[in-house]
Design a protein around this nucleic acid. Sequence first.
DNA 1: GTTTATATTGATAATACATATCAATTTCAC
DNA 2: GTGAAATTGATATGTATTATCAATATAAAC
Lengths: 153, 153
Amino acid sequence: MTPVAQMKMDRRKTFNEFISRKRLKSTKQRDVIFEEFFGNYMGRHVTVEELYEDIKRRYPYIGFATVYRTLKLFRESGIASERNFGDGKARYEPIRDEREHHHHMICTECGKIYEFANNQVESCLNQIAKLNEFKLENHKLEIYGLCSSCRGS
Amino acid sequence: MTPVAQMKMDRRKTFNEFISRKRLKSTKQRDVIFEEFFGNYMGRHVTVEELYEDIKRRYPYIGFATVYRTLKLFRESGIASERNFGDGKARYEPIRDEREHHHHMICTECGKIYEFANNQVESCLNQIAKLNEFKLENHKLEIYGLCSSCRGS
DNA sequence: GTTTATATTGATAATACATATCAATTTCAC
DNA sequence: GTGAAATTGATATGTATTATCAATATAAAC
C-alpha cells in the first residue's frame, strides 16, 4: 500500500471513531465528500465553493450546506485544517502528518501557495509558549511575498 | 517628548506624505480617526465596529464607511497593520516599530490577545524565504491556546 | 478670493461568505 | 421492523465588508 493510501485509511479510521464517539451517523454524502477531499486535494488548499463545484458534477444531489458542515466535521475530528489567507474565504487542507506542523508562503502576485516546515521555528514557539505559561493548542504561520517566478517580472 | 508622542508624530508624517503622494486630500474625519486610533489604541487590536462606536460618541457626524475606508488607508500607508484572528472580524493595530515585527498569542478561552517578539523566529523566517528564493514582504504568526489564567480552570 | 476639477463623505444598497431554520428523509440502536 | 435522533438540501438569515451616488469639502488653478 502506498503511503498516501495508508494515510487516507488512517484518516478514515480517525473520522469513523469521531463519528461514533460523538454519536453521529455515517452517511453517503459524508463518504463522498471524504473520498473527494482525501482523493484529490492532498497538499492543496481548497475552498468550500471549489470542493462543492467539483463534487456537484458527479453527485448533483449533494447540497452546498452539507459540504460546509462536513468540512467543519473534518476539522473538528482533526483530519483537516482550516486556513485563511486573507481573501475572505476559508480553505481546507487534509492533514498528512499530525506530528510535523507545516506552514505557508503565499505569493501576493500569483496567489500560489507554497508549504514549508521548520523544526527550529517549532521549538522556538514551544519555548515562547512555555515562557509565558501558555498552553499551546495550535499555531499558524504565514509568509507573504513574491515567489521566485514573480519577483523577476 | 515621550517616545509614544514621538512615534505618533512620525506616523502622522508618514501618513501626510502618503496622502500627498497619492494626491488624496486631508479631511477633518481622517484627522479625528487618526487621533482616536493612535491616541487610544496603541498596543491594542481594535475592530472597525469598536472604533466606530468609540468615535461616534464624540463625533456623531462621522460615518461607518469612512472609518472602514480610513483604516484601510492607514494600512496602505504602512502605519497600521490588519489582522484576523479567526472570528471573522478584521482588527487594526497601530504600528509602533516598523523594524521589530511582533506576533500574537490568542487565548481560545477568554479571547485575550498577548503579544510577543522573537529574534530567532525572525531570522529563521528570513532564512527560509532566502532558501526558497522568496521575496519576503510580510508575515504573520499566531499561537492559539490557553493563557495562564485560563489553563487552571 | 473665486473658480473649477477632483476627492471625500455618509447613507444605504449590494455583495459575499457563512450559518441557521425546518420539513422531509435517512440512519441506527433497540 | 420500529422509533428516536441525526442529517439533508433548499432557502432564509446573519454578519462583515464593499460599492453606489448625490451632496459636499478640499485644493489646485486662475
